[in-house]
């Protein structure tokens, strides 16, 4: 049996698995959720600062967007009001001019027909 013993030891000697075996095993093991200390959990759950800090960037973006939209609206509104004032002034001027022309025409007609109108 001694010869067979030796042959079996050689035939059944340990073999290395294919390269990257341990990495494949580790990849198949789920990563556990990070464990937090009791203090850190208490801080995260109880303090309002966490809430404020997490919402601060979103709030800042909203405020900036609202300010931008407001100032855009203000500038455009002012321009519209100025345009309306200018149009109103031009209309009044045109009406005054027309009225003056009509007055002049009326005076001319009265002179021409001897004042019977």
């Amino acid at each position: 049996m001694n010869h067979l013993d030796e042959e079996l030891r050689i035939a059944l000697s340990r073999k290395e698995p294919p390269p990257g075996f341990a990495e494949r095993v580790m990849a198949a093991i789920p990563v556990p959720e990070r464990r937090r200390s009791r203090l850190s959990r208490w801080l995260q759950d109880a303090t309002p600062w966490r809430f404020r800090f997490s919402w601060a960037p979103a709030t800042a973006v909203l405020v900036i967007a609202a300010l931008g939209a407001g100032s855009f609206e203000y500038v455009h509104g002012r321009k519209r009001r100025q345009d309306a004032e200018r149009a109103k002034a031009e209309l009044i001027f045109a009406l005054e001019l027309t009225s003056a022309k009509l007055q002049a025409t009326k005076a001319r007609l009265l002179r021409h027909k001897g004042g019977n109108l």
């Binding site: 073999k15 341990a22 990495e23 580790m26």
Partner: peptide
């Protein structure tokens, strides 16, 4: 719970386990 240590444990025993199975 040290994952690096577990990877070392796998490397330490991998030839034994793989060969038994093979």
């Amino acid at each position: 719970g040290d994952r690096t240590a577990f990877a070392d444990l796998v490397r330490h025993h991998q030839s034994m386990v793989f060969s038994l199975a093979f």
